[in-house]
Nucleic acid binder design. Sequence first.
DNA 1: CTGAAAGCGCTAACAT
DNA 2: ATGTTAGCGCTTTCAG
Lengths: 367, 367
Amino acid sequence: MKASAPALPVAAPGWRPATAQDIARAAGVSAASVSRVLNNTGRVGALTRERILKIAAELNYAPNAAARTLASRRSRTVGAVIPSLENLNFAIGIDRFRKVLRERGYTLLLASCDYDNDKEEAQIKAMAAHGVDAVMLIGASHNAQALGFLQARRIPVLLTWSCSPEGANFPMIGSAPCIGFDNFAAARQAALYLLDQGHRRLGVIAGTTVNNDRSAARVNAVAAALAERGLAPPRIVTTPASYLVSEGKAALQRLMQGKGRDAPTAVMCMNDILAYGALLAASELGLDVPHDLSVTGFDDLDFAASLSPALTTVRIPAEAIGDAAASWLVDSLEGRQPPLPPPLSAELVIRASSGPPPRAPAQPTPR
Amino acid sequence: MKASAPALPVAAPGWRPATAQDIARAAGVSAASVSRVLNNTGRVGALTRERILKIAAELNYAPNAAARTLASRRSRTVGAVIPSLENLNFAIGIDRFRKVLRERGYTLLLASCDYDNDKEEAQIKAMAAHGVDAVMLIGASHNAQALGFLQARRIPVLLTWSCSPEGANFPMIGSAPCIGFDNFAAARQAALYLLDQGHRRLGVIAGTTVNNDRSAARVNAVAAALAERGLAPPRIVTTPASYLVSEGKAALQRLMQGKGRDAPTAVMCMNDILAYGALLAASELGLDVPHDLSVTGFDDLDFAASLSPALTTVRIPAEAIGDAAASWLVDSLEGRQPPLPPPLSAELVIRASSGPPPRAPAQPTPR
DNA sequence: CTGAAAGCGCTAACAT
DNA sequence: ATGTTAGCGCTTTCAG
């Protein structure tokens, strides 16, 4: 039952990790040279360099991060605070962010704030105490004090997941760089698609839009698209929690209840989980999707294509955001002045959950 | 369009965060006393203590983590490496872990390893360089070198998500403490429930079981339960990726194809995502669940109860694991010698996706 | 109860 | 090209 334990490389009782001094001593050079070699900074003789490298490897040397940070006043650490790890897209994006960071020699400090800007601010301060070289935040809506604090400490910030403040009605503090996609444009495209299908009454199911400029921008975009075409504003239902299918179900029920002929013929959900709930509720209400009601989502999570009907949704470039954010940030920290990449693209993925409204064949609006 | 920017607390040009020395100077005491007060270590006069505290608050003092780490040889940081952030249960558990850690003054360093033990080892070493005070790992299956490294460095390890090695056939290295639940028992309970319903041929859909003792233990439990009742071993299908509904779909198809009368009457999936895929495939194959086929999952993610039919599954105590792991770890690090909590409980949640097999009324096996 | 002094391991001028 | 000299900001004996 019990496999014999493999031989373990047990350390001597009073063992302690090798230091740069140990290497210097063993190589007959000074600690400074060791530092120079290990950091590729300053000129060093090819022979000594090689000797140092060899000994470092033999001694299994790994620099002490704390000492490095203290002496160089750079921690090679970056902090990220995201609203929630339960949003799979954030999890995916942040994982890429961390991986790229690590390839470039940086370490991620991660925290979540439950969509609460005050908690976010507290996390930011904790990260500052840990000496992070930069901070990555989601979206453009943050406490002025938090941003002010960062600015005072000269800690660079990178905003992600949004891009320009267009469509967002939040106070923008100064102008932090932002890498993401245009939430307003993406939602607008989806709304226009629905209108072109012939829909005239749209419903919106959004998670909470408090402290969430992405969601707010999307909702605004729908309203704007409708207004542009001279149509009535959308019925909007927000849910207390954003990633529960039960919330999506309840929201659709609320949206359709007692509306009779005025009920929306299409419902845009601001994420796929809510859309899934809406699909379930529609089915329970005896509504055929897409014949009686069109439903769209946002995110294009793995299951979206497998739902029945398959979900029309907006695919978000989570991985691309993580990659781009990390490389831009590292480039910046290392003194290169990388241009901010253009907004990444979100793509409308049309599937079976949407189509023309009942008794109204698709007829693209002229112009 | 552009909201007027609120006044920002901008720092003076050459500003730098307050140090313990600054406080000492302002309070007319020594840095040592400041340290003693801020760490509640050693006796200090009530008056001086108060003065120091007041000044520290005024100066908005936050200790420099790197300096603290270097001087005290403790980083108040713990590392965790998990297989994947895409498993929502890990995300939930780790979030609790991080929160409890933070309440107790510790910071989390998080990494993921894609179910690859070599990557895990690399991450562990990187964390050691960062001076983590302890490491938290998922499951009991790890590289011997990784565990040996940790042991040599005297870095405590806490295993989670598993509990005893019972049912796991992996080599256990020494004996690391483990906080989690009994995967074998949980799967066994689900299997026995199915057998009691009258099923005689079970199928299993598992994500990869390589480097995954939890999944392996579950699969073993099913086989053991069947053997115990003198029944044929289960048909087992493993999938290359573990959290894709498409994999679950494909797996069920493979499981049922061309089996005719020998096809399993119940399929146990080792996570809810795979179960969801299996449900979809069953529907496409014209199989009525639970009438023609019973399907069970593992995890009880949010959507499980909303599926139709609602999914019978095993609820995993992810949050409890995160909480318990963090408090136990901190207690240990602070010198208390907390007893390891007993295994947490996973609960079989019976819903509509399971029932008796076709033409065989439920008939609990005698004894 | 409190201060002085000595580093923790590394980097960064400044010499040579 | 390499060594020397100072610390980075904090904790920690050790005296008093």
